Simulated scan of single mutants.
Amino acid sequence: MCRLLGAVTLPSVPLSEALREEFAPFTDQSEVHSDGWGIAWYDGPDARTPQLRRELAVARECGVYETAAREAVGPLVMVHLRKSSPTLPPDPASIHPFQAGDLMFCHNGYFARPDALRAAVLARGGRTPQGMTDSELFLSLITVHHRTHPLAEAVQRAAAEIGALTREHADRPPAALNCLITSPDELVAYCEYDPAQRLPHHTDDNFVLRYRADADRVLVISSGLPQDDYSVLGQGEALVVDRETLVVRVVPPLEAGAAPTPLAELADEAAGDLLAA
């Protein structure tokens, strides 16, 4: 269980300034979510060069975190506070966000990752995971689908593929696939979770993602701080925020069957190879 925060701002200002009232209470959650933190943003003349700071430390007690919050200037910024799974002890390779080219990704949730599932994901040829987290497997599939689909749909299709794989290899759906991902042009948030797999220490809204659009910023934040004036992102929906305009749109869930299973895709590829031969 982790905490997520994404911000798109106009004008581009440091994260600690952009969040104003939200930054301190969000950071305070690291008392519980204490297994590392990460901040990602874009730098350079056109704010398109990925920058990433990650530490295996408690954010509220870490001077590097405070420095990174001042260095992280918009328009696109992402923060992750990690609480590791009991089966994955804290280690530097497991700290979010993760980078794939100019994409930055962080995840709040978990899903079964037996060896057969991991092998099936790696066989798809996406980004190679650097550690053993389920989160990097999710990102790997997103990079596969992003070759042919817009980023929001790539996330939805990757989530559908993970759902098919977990049902095939673990007999249950993913527990949660909530995530944030940015390109230099946009922020995408995705919400999907299974309430039946909520753990005893989870709250009722543990995996709810909420967003708020102001005149000068759009925020997407997981639960844990006051959010009475936020909208809730629905199950299977993807939120897209444009960095240039702050225009927000919600992409509805994929229609049933819209995302082929890995086996179906492989069969289609094999058929194409035969036709080309």
Rank of each mutant, 00 (worst) to 15 (best):
53 R>D: 13
55 E>L: 07
24 A>H: 10
266 L>A: 15
28 D>R: 14
106 C>R: 00
200 P>S: 11
110 Y>N: 08
76 L>W: 08
56 L>Q: 12
97 P>A: 00
196 A>S: 15
165 L>N: 06
242 D>T: 12
263 L>Q: 14
66 E>N: 07
216 D>H: 08
198 R>H: 12
39 I>W: 02
101 G>N: 02
200 P>N: 07
43 D>I: 04
77 V>N: 03
124 R>D: 11
124 R>L: 10
29 Q>D: 04
254 L>N: 07
275 L>S: 06
214 D>Y: 02
25 P>G: 06
6 G>E: 06
234 G>Y: 04
243 R>E: 03
213 A>E: 11
132 M>W: 08
141 L>S: 05
36 G>D: 09
140 S>A: 12
170 A>Q: 07
22 E>R: 12
83 K>P: 00
39 I>R: 01
255 E>F: 06
112 A>R: 13
214 D>I: 03
192 E>L: 14
23 F>P: 00
91 D>L: 08
72 A>H: 04
227 Q>G: 03
266 L>M: 12
178 N>G: 08
218 V>E: 02
189 A>S: 09
16 S>D: 13
186 E>P: 07
21 E>I: 02
78 M>S: 09
237 E>M: 01
38 G>L: 04
66 E>H: 07
69 A>V: 01
110 Y>D: 11
269 E>L: 14
166 T>A: 07
23 F>V: 13
27 T>F: 03
56 L>T: 03
84 S>D: 05
237 E>W: 00
259 A>S: 15
173 P>T: 13
205 D>C: 12
65 Y>R: 11
60 R>Q: 14
78 M>P: 01
23 F>M: 11
155 V>G: 02
239 L>C: 10
96 H>C: 05
114 P>E: 11
254 L>Q: 06
265 E>W: 06
140 S>V: 06
155 V>E: 00
142 I>D: 04
252 P>I: 11
146 H>V: 05
43 D>L: 02
249 R>S: 15
142 I>L: 11
12 S>K: 04
139 L>N: 00
144 V>E: 02
41 W>I: 09
142 I>R: 05
206 N>I: 15
259 A>P: 09
271 A>E: 13
67 T>N: 06
277 A>L: 15
256 A>K: 11
245 T>E: 03
129 P>R: 08
219 L>Q: 00
96 H>N: 06
253 P>H: 05
68 A>H: 04
72 A>F: 03
219 L>F: 01
46 D>K: 14
171 D>E: 14
104 M>Y: 02
93 A>W: 07
81 L>A: 04
25 P>W: 10
107 H>Y: 13
19 L>R: 00
102 D>T: 15
100 A>N: 01
117 L>D: 03
127 R>M: 13
3 R>I: 09
97 P>F: 02
266 L>S: 10
29 Q>G: 06
203 T>F: 11
105 F>Y: 14
6 G>K: 02
212 R>T: 00
161 E>V: 13
206 N>E: 15
263 L>A: 15
12 S>G: 08
188 V>I: 15
277 A>Q: 13
271 A>Y: 09
156 Q>A: 15
70 R>Q: 13
111 F>C: 11
113 R>T: 13
76 L>K: 04
25 P>E: 07
2 C>I: 12
14 P>I: 04
117 L>W: 02
111 F>Q: 10
2 C>S: 12
262 P>Q: 05
118 R>S: 09
80 H>W: 04
